[in-house]
Simulated scan of single mutants.
Amino acid sequence: MARRRYLIAYDISDPVRLRRVIKVMESYGERLQYSVFLCDLSDAELVDWLTDISAVVKLTADSVVRIDLGDTRSPAGIHVIGTGRRLPHAGTTIV
C-alpha cells in the first residue's frame, strides 16, 4: 500500500480546540515543531485524518495546512538549519 508524507501545520484560536487538534495530530504523525507534524499516511488514513480534524476545527476561526511531500519511498528532502531534529523514518511502523 502506497503511503505519502505530509507536513501539517495548524493555527487554532481556542485553547480547548487546540488540545483536541493536538490529540488528533499525535494519533497520525510525529511533532516536528509546536504546531507542525510530519505524517506518513495511506489514502485511507488521509480520509480518516480529514474526517477527524474537520470534526475539531472551526472553519471560520482556525487554519490547518497540509503539504504533500510525496511518496514515502522517495520523499522530498527535509533539511534542518540549526539544532538537529530526529525525523521519523519513512514507511510503516509495526507496534
Rank of each mutant, 00 (worst) to 15 (best):
M1I: 08
A2M: 12
R3E: 00
R5L: 12
Y6V: 02
L7R: 03
L7I: 04
D11H: 03
S13N: 04
S13E: 06
V16D: 07
R19H: 14
R19M: 12
R20G: 02
V21F: 11
K23Q: 12
V24F: 03
E26L: 13
S27Q: 14
G29C: 08
R31D: 00
R31T: 00
L32F: 04
L32R: 07
S35I: 09
S35V: 10
V36W: 04
F37W: 04
D40K: 00
D43R: 15
E45D: 14
V47F: 15
V47H: 15
D48A: 11
W49E: 13
L50H: 15
L50T: 15
L50E: 15
T51N: 07
V56D: 02
A61F: 05
D62Q: 10
D62V: 12
S63M: 04
V64H: 08
V64S: 08
V64P: 09
R66G: 11
D68R: 02
L69G: 03
L69Q: 03
G70R: 03
G70I: 03
D71G: 01
S74M: 05
S74N: 06
P75T: 02
A76E: 03
H79V: 14
I81V: 04
T83Y: 02
T83P: 03
L87D: 07
A90E: 11
I94N: 04
I94K: 06
I94E: 08
V95N: 05
